[in-house]
Structures are given as C-alpha cells and as structure tokens.
Write a protein that binds this DNA or RNA. Structure first.
Lengths: 143, 143
DNA sequence: ATGCAAGTTAAAGTGAACTTTAAAAAAAGA
DNA sequence: TCTTTTTTTAAAGTTCACTTTAACTTGCAT
C-alpha cells in the first residue's frame, strides 16, 4: 500500500477521469505534490476528498460551493471523521430542500391537472414570482 | 383582449425574456405569425405552451425532451385540456424518480455519517458503478 | 537500447440554454 | 412631426464542468 498515488491510480479508484482531476486541482479542490520529474503524487486522503466532491455534486452543489465547503476543513492536519461529518450536515438540509421542492411540484402538478389551471395567469407553479431571477448571462437554473 | 400578442406582451405575462422566446421559436418550441412589417405575433395559446415549458424545465426535462413532448400535441386544432393532461402524466414519473433519488442520497448520507464510510472504496453512494457514464464531452450529470 | 504506456502543459473545444451586441426598421407617444 | 421605444436579424459571447488536442518528456519492460 503506497503512501502516495499517481493520477491514474486515483482516477481508477475514484472513477473520476484524470482530466477532471487536473481540472479539480486547477480549481483548488484537490492538491498534489510533484515527483522529481514533475508528475503528480496525490496523498491517499485525496480519495476521500473526491468522494466528498462527487457526493456533493449529486446533491446539487456547484464546484464553487463545494470548494467553499472544502476550505472549511483544517489545513494543518488530515481531516478527521468529525471534520467531514460537520460538512455533510449541510447536505441533509440541501437534500431535504430538494425533496421539498419536488413534492411541491408534485402537488402543484396534481392540482393543475385537477383544476386545469396550467396557464401563466393562474398557476402559481409557473408564475414568474415563483422562479429565481436569472443572474447574469448563461443558462438559467430553477432552484 | 387582443387575439394575438407581441413578443414583449408574452414576455411580460410569462416572465420569460424576449430573447429566450426568440430562442424557443428558433428551436421550434413555440411559433408565431408575422405582422405586415415582420414583427412577431403570438397566438394566446402560446402562453400555455410556455407555462408547460417552464414547468417541465423545473421538473428536469431538457429543451430537447420538452420539444419532443410538445410535438405530441395535435397540430390541426388548439390543444384541449385533455391533450395537456396526457403530457403532464409523464411528469409525475419524473418527479417521483427525482424524489426517490434524493431519498436514496439521504439514506446514504445518514448511513455514511453513521458508519463513517465516506470513502471511495466502501461507500456505494460515491462508487463509480453507481454513477451514470458520461456521454460525450461537456458537463457530466448525475441522474 | 528501444519502444510503448503514462505523464506534463496550455489552449481550444463541447453542450445546454440562453444573453448580448450591433445596426437598422417600425410603432407608439408627445 | 419628432422622439423614444420596440422589434428585427445574425453572429458572437457567457457559464459550468469538463474533455480533447498537440507537442513533448518520463517510466518501465523487453
């Protein structure tokens, strides 16, 4: 069991492509030392970090948000299970919020089918006020 | 109450920007006649169509999927409430699937906190097999 | 020694869903 | 009539999360 891992070893064990790992490093989400020849050497703890990233993405966090979360981990020592647990607690909120939103859509949909109100004027689920405002250019996401 | 609406009227009533409406028309999601001078004139039924689009997006359908759904509407006559209801039934499935996925993440998260297994090797929620394969370049989405 | 796999970088490309820009024409209000 | 607002088009720009490409250097096995 090696102490450090190459990029392909990390990729194989995490299921995240090497190109994505380089991208994450560029964004500061993970870090590596270099071998004499300049090749990346990742500490084993990187695997847990990547697990966090992947899970957080599924929960709906953007890489920027994930980055902010990861910045809360202690820098001087290897994060303990407790450190990780603290970050994850935020996910429950997020997950519950997502579930709640879907439930709301579900109720809205049933309601709209029931009353036939699927129109911009009447249906509060398609109402502008109910949607998030676009921030800047690019795709608009409906939280 | 006018029979046809200008693009700004549609934008105001739907909360969807004129630029997005033009984009939707380009993609064939909505259609318009033209005035003598070449200005768009949308039939009132466009509002309902846009309501459908916005709602469907919140449920998680892509514009392409939405386009396919809209193509199922009758072309010869104005769609009835029944026509719309048929399309919406697909949403319930989709919503329930989304809710189920979040519940799964929730259970997984609780489990991972409980057993401290948030690692790539042990946790089935961050396991590669559990994730969708990337199809082509671009962002990867975890269904 | 030779050859191939694996690693490096910077820069450009990708896909979705739009937005912005620019230049010109038409409609509406004072 | 004059001015302001609205609308038109085509083309280029934007964001996110990566991937691909190209040109090169290293590592490892034969």
């Amino acid at each position: 069991m090696e102490k450090v891992l190459t990029i392909s070893a990390i990729a194989r064990r995490s299921g995240v492509k090497a190109s994505a790992l380089r991208f994450y490093e560029e964004k500061g989400l993970i870090a590596s030392e270099r071998s004499n020849s300049g090749h990346r050497r990742f500490p084993r703890s990187t695997l847990r970090r990547i697990a966090f990233i992947v899970f957080a993405q599924r929960v709906g966090l953007s890489l920027e948000e994930i980055s902010e979360e990861l910045d809360k981990l202690p820098k001087k020592r290897t994060p303990t299970r407790d450190d990780w647990d603290k970050l994850s607690s935020k996910w429950l909120e997020r997950i519950d919020k997502k579930i709640a939103e879907m439930e709301k859509l579900r109720v809205g949909l049933t309601g709209c089918i029931g009353c036939g109100c699927l129109s911009v004027d009447a249906c509060k689920f398609v109402n502008p006020d109910d949607r998030v405002a676009a921030r800047g250019p690019g795709p608009r996401f409906w939280v």
